[in-house]
Write a protein that binds this DNA or RNA. Sequence first.
RNA 1: CGGGACAUAGCGCAGCCUGGUCAGCGCGCCUGCCUUGGGCGCAGGAGGUCGCAGGUUCAAAUCCUGCUGUCCCGACCA
Length: 583
Amino acid sequence: MRLSHYFMPTLREVPAEADVVSHILLLRGGFVRQLAAGVYSHLPLAQRALLRIRQIIREEMNRIGGQEFHLPAIHPAEIWQATGRWEVMGDNMFRLKDRWGRDMCLGMTHEEVFTSIARNELRSYRQLPQIWYQIQTKFRDEPRPKSGLLRVREFTMKDSYSFDVDWDGLDKSYRLHYDAYCRIYARCGLDYFAVEAHSGSMGGSQSHEFMVRSDAGEDLVVRCPGCGYAANLEKAASRIAPVTDTDPAGPEPVRVATPGQKTIEEITQFLGVPAQNQIKTLVYVVDSKPTLILMRGDHQLNEAKLEALTGTALLRPATADEIVAAMGADAGSLGPVGVKNLPILADEALRGRRNMTTGANATDFHIQGVTPDVHFSAAYHDLRTVVDGDRCPACDSALGVFKSIEVGHIFKLGTKYSDALGASVLNRDGQSVPIVMGSYGIGEERILSAAVEQCHDDKGIIFPATIAPFDVIIVPVSMEDSRLVETADRFYEELRAAGLEVLYDDRPERPGVKFNDADLVGIPVRITLGTKKLAQGLAEVTVRREARAVDCPVDEVTGRVTAALAALRAEIEARLSDIRPLQ
RNA sequence: CGGGACAUAGCGCAGCCUGGUCAGCGCGCCUGCCUUGGGCGCAGGAGGUCGCAGGUUCAAAUCCUGCUGUCCCGACCA
């Protein structure tokens, strides 16, 4: 492309609405423009990068036997009502009516549609397994779109679905996807990792998220530097140092007045009891029933774990009034002793402890000398939120906690959707069995954004060679010098003939403008043509990442550029050999 | 949904408190000259219903009310 007539509206200044680096650079580089909150137009540069990402995804999906479909974005309400998700999705679903008043929606995901095809068409285990996928626009009316393309209301997803006759088959399809996803991210040049994930409202038994470390991300993940254990904070487990307790002063807890002392910190100060010797008592409303949650004083409840344990997303902290009604005391003086009519869930960290301090269920009183399983009984579960520095459950190394961008998510769905929609096949024994399903998603724009987050410097984007919108940019420092222009023209023809995507900056701009734009949009290789060097028969080749110009005889430029790109690609491809299959 | 902020030319902003030569600046854009290795210089020029709708006033970008949009924090998030 000749840049003089290419639509690449770069901006010198940072638009006010952007504050994460990928958003800033994609706006400044002329990749995207915003149409509404969480709704973006992809301009030609973004479209080129996204098409390259898409091609990688297609190749890897086809490699595992995936068959590409294209499903409707507009769905009738019925299939969503059949799985219960017409209600579950709530305000996140874009809804509309057709001219006859029939309820429709814009597709947020396509379990329902693919499963309905499977229901209508698949009859026999002999037809399985199947892996079906599509690359299509998804619509989700996010409560708070943010961070440029990272959380949006309309985006492009590769979603695939596996259909197997049994769970062993699903395990295999899941592993195929896990491997394909690793290859996709590696080939896109991302430094990614997979984490064990919480399945959320998708249901299902096992789930992994694919993450790219970035402070612009919204997910907190836990990772072990020692053994590679990695999990979403919502699911992560850890070991903690044991606590040695002293014996209580007497067999029964002692009640003490604690006027105005509510928080763990206040009690620590007032009674001189360390937080780890206190029991934090929370009241949650779980499926509209009050439930007592007990944590060690210095630990935080992990709501996702509570959700997974109770099997419902319908949970929330009780209100102040609900707490008084259930416990007879204000929050700040709550405890488990004497509680008979509420379920009590305790974190594992309280098991075996003695001589703890907690609320007395009388406002402004606490009790000391409380021993779990003696003075109250509870069901123990892992409910604690891992914190940075906790020990790895597998190898005891110190765990790190950091933010990441979720670039993909895979789920073992099981039979949730096939049961709901009646998708079944006859097995080998002639019995009708529900199809066992998996569902697998990748957000294309998130890959683009994550790549920009991960690959940039103070001048702009440094695209991985495999997903860059162009391979090489030719920059003659002047369009007035006919020798420069002739040589640039010649490079343009030769490089295109060599199969490269070439951007030719033939604008009558000053060199600084051209260099800055080339750096900003992140094209991996630049050829610079200047008068003095050309008089010696030389041009310069600069790899964007290295920012160091190398002189090159004019006749060797095409070969040099081709070799530089091949080296960049080879470096990325080499990472494929690091992929470890899912255990 | 709770909290906070913003909305003036394509982009970034000032002006608003204290109403009246306040429609202004920088960048970008157009024309000409000049310059040509990291966003050059000079001269001239185009471009804005000051988010929308009401209200107060002789007079509103400026004060008041309502609405809409956008961003940030939190909640939420297959």
